[in-house]
Design a protein around this nucleic acid. Structure first.
Length: 139
DNA sequence: CCGAAGACACATA
DNA sequence: TATGTGTCTTCGG
């Protein structure tokens, strides 16, 4: 079986399925981040600290690393390890799921992957919005 | 280098 | 609701 992103293919898929189901990964996975810019690394470091069942927003991350929200969005969008680095826990300040990549699909066929991931992690929605109690502020 | 483009935020009408 | 502006990083010419 092949090697995939620093772990066996089998284990990688197994952990990925767990995350899709809203379960916690069995073990913390070490991922190489050599290709990232130093700015991206700073952003992903914050993402790693977002607790399960909580979300934060682009502006708060920006403040935490002394940058701007758009720059944070750009870094989040180029996350090389989605799911493992929980970019799905970052939402706009209005607490909707935001303009993540999948949101460009036609509405009737839109998979709403981000929302489903969040719901399985226990994030409470009311209509299109996440309840304010789920907001986490980076320390 | 310079300009344009973002998974944004905030102000103003 | 809907433009318009500010701000910061990346990428392409």
């Amino acid at each position: 079986m092949g090697e995939h992103r620093g772990m066996s293919e089998h284990r990688y898929l197994e952990e990925m399925v767990r995350i899709f189901r809203g379960q916690e990964p069995h073990s913390r996975v070490r991922l190489g981040r050599e290709q990232n810019t130093s700015f991206q690394t700073r952003v992903y470091t914050v993402l790693d600290r977002i607790p399960r069942g909580r979300v934060t927003n682009y502006g708060l991350i920006a403040k935490a690393i002394d940058s701007g929200p758009r720059a944070v969005g750009q870094a989040v969008g180029s996350n090389p390890y989605p799911l493992f680095v929980p970019c799905h826990r970052v939402v706009p300040v209005d607490m909707t799921v935001g303009n993540y990549s999948m949101s460009r699909a036609p509405r009737h066929s839109r998979p709403d992957v981000k929302r489903r991931l969040l719901e399985r992690e226990g994030i409470p929605f009311q209509g299109e919005r996440i309840l304010p109690g789920a907001l986490w502020t980076p320390v």
